[in-house]
């Protein structure tokens, strides 16, 4: 079936005339081609900017080195300190030894972390909560953005503006009303073999997931990306008999890899870092995420080495994820024109 091939063909080489043939009329074809070249041109521009930077010379390198130091040294300090006993961490503070794994080095702090905190359980919780939030977030927000970008309805731009406007309300403002609200929601419970309803989502997994699926910024990112995908592709697909969902699933989404990667990372980070919300709505230890675990180390006598060991443990998945998605993440940020 020609249609199933289409997105892949378009993705690998946007200027392929195949697009034009399916699209039908010459005029549309030209526009489509233009759309395609714009994409290509963007990529060229990007690479030429990179080579421009490559020629920046010594000053540029020094600047980059300085920035790398600023961002890498706290991580280095964290990891190095996680290997030292408390007294040595403080003793090394005033010298460069703070960044070097020297002295009394061991993994004792890591072993102690697991005695103090159910770290494995917290990690599994956070991985589950973040993964489900990301997956459902990609689905729901891309569908919303698809509707706003592709469907013919009045007031689309007003709706989009309203959605974007919600970005200015900080979460701290919404937190308390949200606690009240989730406490009123019904949840389905399984009591023996009979299904029942109980009131309140407090102290559950879903209260940590559902409120964070719909996200204005993700909708906006998807919308901007979808707008750059030529509408002629939809029209071609429709002529082949595809409906909205099929266009979404087989034309638009396969072309939106970088946007998906960006939304995935931007949804993952706050989900992984969430602290205030689980503090307010989760009471059972078995349901807590990793960030709440940090507090376990701040007793009257703080064990700093263990703090650093735990911090290293919970930073690792984030760093790994970023390295894995780095390329598409940077590409998407650069090409969608969204900075920071």
């Amino acid at each position: 079936m020609a249609l199933t091939q289409l997105p892949d063909a378009a993705a690998s080489s946007p200027e392929q005339p195949a697009v034009v043939t399916v699209a039908g009329s010459g005029r549309r074809g030209t526009r489509s081609r233009r759309g395609g070249t714009t994409g290509g041109g963007r990529a060229d521009g990007l690479s030429s900017r990179w080579s421009g930077r490559r020629r920046a010379g010594l000053g540029g390198w020094l600047l980059r080195l300085a920035l790398a130091v600023v961002f890498a040294f706290p991580l280095l300090f964290m990891f190095v300190s996680s290997l030292k006993p408390d007294q040595q961490i403080f003793g090394d503070l005033s010298s460069v030894a703070a960044f070097l794994p020297i002295g009394n080095i061991s993994f004792d702090n890591y072993a102690a972390v697991f005695d103090r905190v159910p770290a494995a359980r917290f990690l599994i919780n956070s991985i589950g909560i973040s993964a489900i939030t990301v997956l459902l977030g990609i689905l729901v927000n891309s569908l919303a953005a698809f509707a706003l970008s592709r469907m013919n309805m009045r007031g689309k731009s007003i709706i989009l503006t309203l959605i974007i406007a919600t970005l200015i309300v900080p979460f701290e403002t919404l937190a308390l009303p949200l606690v009240w609200w989730v406490n009123q929601l019904p949840s389905l419970t399984l009591d023996g073999f009979s299904l029942g309803f109980s009131k309140g989502w407090i102290d559950t997994y879903q209260v940590q997931i559902i409120p964070f699926i719909a996200n204005a910024f993700s909708i906006y990112l998807f919308h901007q990306y979808f707008e750059s995908i030529p509408k002629e592709l939809d029209e071609a697909a429709r002529m082949d008999g595809a409906g909205w969902f099929r266009i979404y699933r087989q034309v638009v989404m396969p072309l939106s890899g970088p946007a998906v990667a960006t939304v995935a990372i931007l949804t993952f980070l706050p989900a992984w870092n969430s602290y205030l919300w689980p503090l307010m709505v989760v009471q059972t230890e078995e349901l807590r995420p990793v960030m709440v675990g940090v507090q376990y180390f701040f007793q009257l006598n703080v064990s700093w080495g263990e703090v650093m060991a735990y911090a290293s443990l919970i930073t690792l998945p984030v760093v790994a994820l970023f390295i894995a998605f780095q390329r598409s993440f940077v590409n998407s940020i650069a090409s969608s024109g969204v900075k920071g």
Partner: peptide, 16 residues
């Protein structure tokens, strides 16, 4: 999706 939500609700402690 709906059943996923329901099953999540099921495995959490639903104390009222």
């Amino acid at each position: 999706a709906a059943s996923l939500v329901a099953s999540l609700a099921g495995c959490a402690s639903a104390g009222t």
